[in-house]
Amino acid sequence: MKTFDYTITDPEGIHARPAGLFVKEAGKFASKITIAKDGKEVDAKRIFGIMSLGVKKDNTVTLNIEGDDEEEAFTALEAFFKENL
């Protein structure tokens, strides 16, 4: 299992659009991917779930990735966060 924490720098937090783009990115991998904030964990492949976390700027989220392609997923999703959020 791979895991990483990320603190959001985008002033708007995880809005609908970045949430959607993230879901698309996560959907490319077979691994089970979850995203958690303050103990609430949701499936990273579901846009409503991610939006329901209400992630704002300066919040820290934790990603957990588990599966055969977890290495690739880890690299891609970490890059996605850095670039978009």
Partner: peptide, 11 residues
């Protein structure tokens, strides 16, 4: 685009 993503939401 966002509406499409919502429509495809698995939950």
């Amino acid at each position: 685009e966002v509406h499409q993503m919502m429509l495809e939401d698995l939950d």
